[in-house]
Design a binder for these strands. Sequence first.
DNA 1: ATACAAGTAA
DNA 2: TTACTTGTAT
Lengths: 589, 589
Amino acid sequence: MEKQDTVMLREEDRDTPPITGFGGSSTEAKLTLALSDATFNQLLADAGPVVPHLTASDVNRGVGLLSRAPNSFFGQMTEEEASDSNDGVPHIFEIETEAVQINVPNLQTGTSTTLSDINAILAGYANCSNNSNRCTPQETNEGRCFPALSDPANMEGDYIRQFLSGSDGEAAARPVSACQPPSSVAAEYPSNTPYPGPYGFQIFFSKAPENESKKTISYVYVRDENRLYVRPNTACPIHFKVDQQLPVGTRVRAMPAYSRPQDVQDVVKRCMNHIQEDREKLDHCDHFIRSNHRDVRFEEAGPRRRQSVTVPLDAPPTGSDYTTAMFEFMCFSSCTGTINRRPLQVVFTLEQGDQVIGRHAIELKVCACPGRDATVNDAKADTDGKKRKAPKARGERVTEFSTVQPLTSTTEDDTLYVVQIHGRELYKLVMTIIRNYEMSRRYEELSSSPSTSSSTVRTLPVPLGPDTTVERWLQSLDMAKYVKIFGNHGLHTLEDINGRITKEYLAKLGIRDATDVNKLVGAYVQFRNIEAQGKLSSLESNDSFSYTPTTSQQTDGGAQANHGYRVSKTTVRHSYKMPNAKRRREALE
Amino acid sequence: MEKQDTVMLREEDRDTPPITGFGGSSTEAKLTLALSDATFNQLLADAGPVVPHLTASDVNRGVGLLSRAPNSFFGQMTEEEASDSNDGVPHIFEIETEAVQINVPNLQTGTSTTLSDINAILAGYANCSNNSNRCTPQETNEGRCFPALSDPANMEGDYIRQFLSGSDGEAAARPVSACQPPSSVAAEYPSNTPYPGPYGFQIFFSKAPENESKKTISYVYVRDENRLYVRPNTACPIHFKVDQQLPVGTRVRAMPAYSRPQDVQDVVKRCMNHIQEDREKLDHCDHFIRSNHRDVRFEEAGPRRRQSVTVPLDAPPTGSDYTTAMFEFMCFSSCTGTINRRPLQVVFTLEQGDQVIGRHAIELKVCACPGRDATVNDAKADTDGKKRKAPKARGERVTEFSTVQPLTSTTEDDTLYVVQIHGRELYKLVMTIIRNYEMSRRYEELSSSPSTSSSTVRTLPVPLGPDTTVERWLQSLDMAKYVKIFGNHGLHTLEDINGRITKEYLAKLGIRDATDVNKLVGAYVQFRNIEAQGKLSSLESNDSFSYTPTTSQQTDGGAQANHGYRVSKTTVRHSYKMPNAKRRREALE
DNA sequence: ATACAAGTAA
DNA sequence: TTACTTGTAT
Ligand SMILES: [Zn+2]
Ligand SMILES: [Zn+2]
């Protein structure tokens, strides 16, 4: 089996998030500690040319790898995306590569791993690769067959690669005695490798799962983290989609697993307290995952007696192209003694008999307040890696104006207003705002139609909002060539890029052309400014304070041409110096 | 048996905390619901003249009664107190009274209590009273023989007394068929009545149990609450003292019980998770209380199979007059499923064979941070009656800007500028800024010196900049309490928080107090506004685009008083409509 | 929806 | 020791 032929690395793919395997990223330091040189060299010899990507920060943080690279999880779609199934999104997985992925679990502290352990793991993936031979390879519209291995910005990642790559790539195909049958339940470590398989198996969640208010929501899926937050003992609908009709008897298995390398060997079970609680009420009361499907089957199999449930993947209801299954999670992620706050995953496998014909995994947190915890995790990610930010270089602050809101109407844009401003401070402030605004307006006009000199011409016929797609935004800027890059990084809406568009960030994405960078940043700044305006405007609505026009006079009273260029129409003069008496009175109330 | 003779109630004792029995205080409403009239009358006939005291607030709060009345717990001494044993502290219990105390457990919701149940309870106490005949009565130096029954402030307490007292007082001495043996383990409900008994049994704790620092302390006894805070699985020394030599074979039993009336019927056991954890490591791994004494005996007895341990009360070591026994508590008070955060007691009984010859009880909280929790409980007691902070009311937005960021230099603040603004979008944006600015200026003036009508009064002498520490900023806002929160998120300078301060973000940081949030956001908006002004001003130096004043005219040319109120000094009129030619040229470069 | 409680990690 | 996490009460 010549895997090299199927692994096509291209230079331009380097900015693509790498695919990462289950725990594969954290072998680094611990392998060098626990393995003898001979063992380690053998490992190198066995390892194929394609190795999982990992970063030192992953190792240090013990973070679930999958959550770092949303794009490495194929098959998660929003409901809308799922509905147009042939859009050729670049998220289609090249299945051959699965065969040579290496998922080496991290070693437990104080334990050691033998070569046969590792061989067993490799064998498991070899089996996956055999299965994949039955699959129809799917290529993206970019012709990319495999995500890049290298993150040029991460030298430690390169270091690891140095150790694990460069060998002959035979290991994946080599039969090993510890080889397990392909069944998903039989593996020592459950695979979580995304695998759409021959039927294009996909999993996704409702965009707005419930009408509950944000804080009381009983489950929420956060796409950036590929993580489901859900309350225990709550039926959570999960949507599954295939692109062909499935043979009868095809089932979906939900198997829980620990995310962190040091935990993967543990079987996820309910805690004793919760088992005890349901001992008389539920059959299989020790299973962590349940389903209320009439045909649910509880299984406990494999060398570790891992527990899982399967439900048949019924045909989609009429008018729908996906099937919804309900699963319940019967313990908190924080339950003492067992899960004990350890990060979890759920691996969903599409199975035909004992053949795995599709697989997707999600991160899972079962908690009392999914809405709250999803938010908190978001904030944490925001400030992550910011321990002590180095004194930031000045001069790029201009890009940091931001927060999101839709544009307002642009129909009266050429009206000229005259405003009296009281005090130099405020005057300078206003001038700054105005300059900034005009600057971004210029950018926008240029990008939309350089030949138009009037500021009434807007690139965007429809106001931008947080839900506007990045694609549309880029197209409006004549930067459609960057659509793919943004999409590859999981940035689909303007909401997604909120707070991100800086020169540095664009550089990370691989956008380094100075003109384009300036254009993007400028346009983004304007979007942010205008959006901020809308936000502030909404604030003022229920405020008792309101300025009053003191003078109104017409300047430049040009006639308004129907579609012509209107220099100015009305002048309103306000004085913003409030009478002291009034100010004091209002302040006191 | 004429108990009345031994019960000496004095008027001046009314403010003394009453003695309360185990759960006796909450019979009130539920008795009247659950008992037939005949049964209830029978109960009244059986009840002695001395009844437990209870308050409605106890019932409503479900508060452990004993914690309300520290003085009702005799026998707890500090080490110093114990050493001078003849100081005649008023904590000496008049033993005869125990005979007629009534400990009626609260009825479980949905259950009913029969008269025989109650008789059984009464009988238990009758037996105690018989035992007490062997005791040497001890009087306090105040001559008080029995705590007052009445809390004058509590009418419901009086109501209960009305029902339960005033009968012939025979019940206590009357043998009842359901009568239980006197053994402490045999009772349906364990008694927690303090009872020094014939040997003057006393229990106390070391004043400073450990040399650990306050926060890392593994156990602490708070005398005001008669409560021991202790870490689980930690040997906690408890001192026992008798004033005569004990017969050989005398043992001390430690039995856990729930404090609240609605819990007393439950047996205190370890939670399943912790049992499981120690299943192979410990014998009697299901016992909540353990001792590392070589001669510890685990018992499980009585109708409820209550678990307890006994250790021999060895003779005090030479030079000491007390004996120390070690007990360990094997679950958190917060353990899910079993104790579940319910308040606990430990009843220590001195036993000779199956005779109880001494008893004392303490409140117990087993927690991870005894030092912290003891302090917290202290503080809570301080602010008691304050309930929990009311959910914050919305709509006080006017206060949002009350402490808005102080303005920068003010020397020219009253200059009036006239600005032409092109386009309604920009106009609205500018107006929003101006309104916010003026609003904060108003509030700032009010807060800094309401008597000053001039805006020259500033709160902050030094202008803020991106390098200003968040700490100083917060201090200037009187929000120093949030310094740590920001610091923990790597936000140290105003630069760090640039673009981040929104209500949502603050909520993520854990800052949710509406007033504070509004204050911070308002102040931040102003800071941003001012900062943006400066930044863009500096930007424009190397920017070919710069607005130019088109008109300059003097309006309202008032003379500038030295510190007087200056209405306006200069008027500058700008047009912000850029020439199309220039705009196009700049945009292309 | 907010505030608190309490175990636990850094 | 601090502060965060996270279940739970109000
Ligand atoms: Zn559990
Ligand atoms: Zn426990």
